[in-house]
Amino acid sequence: MNNKIELIVNGILENVSVVRVCIAAFLAKQNITIDELSDIKTAVSEAVTNSIEHGYVETKGNVNVIAKIANVDNMVFLVVEVKDNGIGIQDVGLATTPAYTSKPELEHAGMGFTIMETFMDEVVIDSTIGQGTKITMTKRLRTVKE
C-alpha cells in the first residue's frame, strides 16, 4: 500500500529529533528490521542536520520533509525527500567527500553524506546556490510476496 507524509518544520536543531521520531512512526507498520529502521533514522537525521546547520547559516527557514512508501514492480520502496531554502552547496563533490567538513571547529565528523549513501540505496543531491538543497534518498524495504 502506498502512503505519504509531509512535514514542515522550522529549521532549528531541536527539530532534528522531531523529524526522526515522525519518520519512525511513519514506518511503524512497515515490516522492517530494527537495524533498517535505525539506518533510515540516522540517514534522515544527517540530511535534516545538514539543512539546518549548513543550509541556514545566516537566514532562517523551514525544512520540508516528505516520506513516501511506494510499491513499484512488487517491491516496496521508501523515498525520503529533505528540502531547504538555504544557501545551497558550493561544491557537491567536496561536500560528499568522506571526513570533509566545512566546520571542523565545531567537531563535525564530516560523515553526513557518507552515512546517507551507506545506509540508503540511493541518494540524489539537487542543490542550487542561493536557493537551497533537496536531498532525495531511496531505500528498498522489501519484495512483496505474490
Binding site: T42, T49, E107, A109, M111
Partner: peptide
Amino acid sequence: NFMDSSGIGFIAG
C-alpha cells in the same frame, strides 16, 4: 538508542 555523525564528532572531540 540513537546516535548520528554528530556523536562521532562528540566522541572524537
